[in-house]
Simulated assay, not measured.
Amino acid sequence: MLRKFLVFVMLLACLSVFHVPATAQGDDTLVEGLNGPRGMAYDADGNLYVAEAGTGGTVVAGNAELGNGSVGGTSQITMVAPDGTQSVVVAGLPSLSTGPEGLGAVHMIVTSDSLWLVLNEGLPMLPFADSVIELDRATGRMKNFIDLYAYEQDNNPDGTDEIYSNPTDIALAGDGTLYIVDTGANTLYTWTEADGLQVFKSWGDDPVPTAIDFGPDGSIYVGFLGTGIAPGAAHVDQLDETGEVVQSFGDLSAVTDIAVMDDGTVYAVQMLQFGEQGPAPESGSVVALSADGATPVAEGLNFPYGLEETPDGNLVVSVNAAFTDPGTGAVQLITLGDM
Rank of each mutant, 00 (worst) to 15 (best):
P231I: 11
P209G: 00
D161R: 09
Q198P: 03
F274M: 15
F18P: 01
G92F: 00
V59A: 12
L6N: 15
V246N: 05
L239D: 11
M142H: 11
M1F: 12
A230M: 15
F128Q: 15
I220E: 08
A81F: 04
A171Y: 05
D237F: 04
V106M: 13
P167C: 01
W191K: 01
E308W: 02
G104H: 06
Q277N: 14
S114D: 14
Y179M: 09
R3E: 15
S248H: 11
V255N: 06
L126F: 03
G329R: 13
P82F: 04
E152P: 06
D136G: 06
M1N: 13
G218D: 07
I109L: 11
D292F: 02
F8P: 00
L301F: 01
E299T: 15
Q153D: 15
T227I: 13
M339F: 12
A321L: 05
A322F: 15
V106T: 14
T183K: 09
E276M: 09
M271S: 08
P279C: 06
D262M: 03
A81V: 07
V269K: 10
E101G: 00
V118A: 05
F200C: 03
L93R: 09
M125Y: 09
V71E: 15
A129P: 13
F145S: 07
A150G: 09
D130S: 10
D205P: 08
A53C: 10
G327D: 12
G72W: 13
L135I: 07
V297W: 02
V208E: 13
A268L: 05
Y149D: 13
L119E: 13
G284R: 05
Y42P: 00
A321Y: 13
Q238W: 07
P127S: 03
E101F: 11
V9D: 15
S253L: 10
C14V: 15
P127G: 02
A330Q: 12
